[in-house]
């Protein structure tokens, strides 16, 4: 009885969680003009249409570029922070860890508002401002992944390097980095994915001609654009994330991805 009940709840939960995403994926390949289920046929017309709309195309490109660059910046900053935190047990390391992890739970829209006020006051231009916001939001994910692998790294290996005459930087580059790279890579991938889907912080920070894909989808929806183009845009989002996840699984293994 208990087992059946448990399975039932798991089924309901999975349906609720995956259902909407699957619906989006399916209808985006519809050949029809409107949302009907099941779709009348299969076609890629809405994807073609999507790339035909300049705003959507630009938003897609911007999101990709932004995700690539901010993932690199986050991975680098996360690596630096994780090095310090993993090697020190003092006030600063606790503070740094809290500071880096804070944007993970901090209400994203409020962070966006605070950044917008600052940017307006110091006249920051849109693109760098947006980039920095993405870095701040992605940093906790990258940091956490790198920290996990640094904490399980055996530091006597670095001491061995030093005993052989390699300075701190050299032993880090030649020994530590090659060993922890799956952690850094999965941090990068996390950051990429988070940046690619980032929404609530960037809401206030986009500008004319500089709009990310999630926000373009959002405003399209709000102004009642053709819903099937939105479906295609959304499906594209999902597909890219799936692609990145599969890639990540291939490169660093599932274990590295789900551990936290």
């Amino acid at each position: 009885m208990g087992a059946v009940f448990l399975r039932l709840i798991v089924g309901i939960a999975l349906t609720l969680i995956m259902g909407p995403i699957l619906v989006v994926l399916i209808v985006s390949f519809s050949s029809g003009d409107a949302l009907v289920f099941p779709p009348p046929g299969f076609s890629l017309r809405w994807f073609v249409e999507f790339f035909g709309i300049a705003e959507m195309r630009n938003a897609f490109m911007l999101s990709i570029v932004l995700a690539l660059t901010s993932a690199c910046a986050s991975a680098l900053l996360g690596l630096l922070g994780a090095i310090y935190v993993s090697r020190n047990r003092n006030g600063l390391s606790t503070f740094l860890q809290m500071l880096i992890m804070a944007p993970l739970v901090f209400p994203a829209l409020i962070l966006g508002l605070a950044l917008l006020l600052l940017y307006k006051t110091v006249n920051m231009s849109v693109l760098p401002g947006l980039f920095i916001a993405h870095v701040v939001v992605c940093l906790p994910y990258a940091f956490r992944a790198v920290l996990t692998s640094l904490q399980s790294f055996d530091t006597t290996l670095e001491e061995a390097g030093q005993s052989l005459g390699a300075g701190p930087v050299r032993s880090f580059m030649l020994i530590t980095l090659p060993i922890i790279w799956p952690g850094v890579l999965s941090g990068w991938l996390f950051a990429f994915v988070v940046s690619f889907g980032e929404l609530n912080t960037a809401l206030f920070l986009t500008g004319p001609g500089i709009v990310t894909l999630p926000i373009e989808i959002f405003s399209y929806l709000q102004f009642q654009g053709n819903q099937l183009v939105v479906a295609a845009a959304s499906a594209l989002q999902v597909l890219i994330i799936l692609f990145v996840l599969v890639l990540a699984e291939r490169l660093v293994g599932a274990k590295q991805l789900v551990q936290r």
């Binding site: 055996d154 006597t156 290996l157 001491e159 061995a160 390097g161 030093q162 005993s163 052989l164 005459g165 390699a166 300075g167 701190p168 032993s171 020994i175 090659p178 060993i179």
Partner: peptide, 20 residues
């Protein structure tokens, strides 16, 4: 003087061989 500027060889308890 830091370790890497001294001249000594060391065998660690768990050997600390570089796995890669």
């Amino acid at each position: 003087i830091p370790a890497y500027k001294r001249s000594f060889g060391m065998v660690f308890q768990n050997f600390a061989l570089f796995p890669h």
